[in-house]
Write a protein that binds this DNA or RNA. Structure first.
Lengths: 151, 151
DNA sequence: GCCCATTTGTTCGTATGTATA
DNA sequence: TTATACATACGAACAAATGGG
């Protein structure tokens, strides 16, 4: 690691990763290189990489999945700008999670009905998003790879 | 068999330190025991202490001064006041996704298709939320050393 | 002023556990 | 079962800052 600036290596790595995420060099949803690969790329130990990744993960930019990789969760701009109207969405999210928990606790029972209800909740939640997009004056982005719509 | 009881050592130490700060066992402005002393008190390695102290330092509860010590900067209540909503929502999203993964693995055989669709929808939902926040976002107070500070 | 012990901050190497594919 | 990858943990080394003698 070229240590021209008087900052710790893990901070330099974190800043560089942050920059790569912001510039879509590491797009949202993609996986960053593995810890071993990053140690080679930056020429530092795994501890430095872990510290840098841990910092970005604490900031909500990255999320690690054991056995899979570390994935870009959001851009620095998006992570730094979340503010209001969270209460409504947070409440809906809580309801969704409660439903999930209920389904999981009843796992030994027949599952088709619960899954159907789950899909219904997901559809309803998405519809709320559509409304919010409408209030923003923007069309709801269609990914094409989504779940069957719920009516 | 998810052992919800067994938390990592550094987390237990962090929680205990947080509690001692909240109960004024470690008053604001005072220094906590040194790293070497904490390793003896808790019976863990310096890595665990460093991780615990680092977590509380990242939360703004502690501030280290090389050559002197680590000092209590604010109470958990004061620190939680400014960092509340966004971190909560992020955490909920993380837990939500983790539970989704658990449900998926528990029912992989019979309901793989439904769960896969549900998981995909959850991922899309998350991305839409991120985009939505980016579009709704107000200018965010720049992070840096924005500490409430004991004025 | 100088030496030295203490303490934090940082980095390194390594090992074990666990989840995933 | 095997391989990959993250999370956690132990121990050690060095630099820099601080304060006492």
């Amino acid at each position: 690691m070229t240590e021209s600036i008087g900052q710790p290596a893990y901070q330099q790595v974190a800043d560089d990763l942050r920059r790569k995420i912001a510039s879509a060099d590491f797009p949202v949803g993609s996986a960053i290189p593995s810890t071993a690969r990053l140690t080679e790329l930056y020429g530092v130990s795994s501890t430095v990489i872990r510290a840098a990744v841990g910092q970005l993960r604490a900031d909500g930019l990255l999320i690690g999945q054991p056995g899979k990789g570390v994935f870009v969760r959001a851009t620095p701009e998006a992570a730094a700008e979340r503010a209001a109207t969270i209460e409504d969405l947070s409440r809906q999210l809580d309801e969704f999670r409660a439903e999930l928990r209920r389904v999981e606790s009843a796992r030994r029972e027949e599952t088709a009905a619960e899954i159907a209800a789950l899909r219904l909740d997901a559809g309803l939640l998405r519809r709320h998003l559509v409304d919010l997009y409408a209030q923003l004056g923007k069309p709801y982005p269609d990914d094409g790879a989504s779940v069957p719509a719920v009516e």
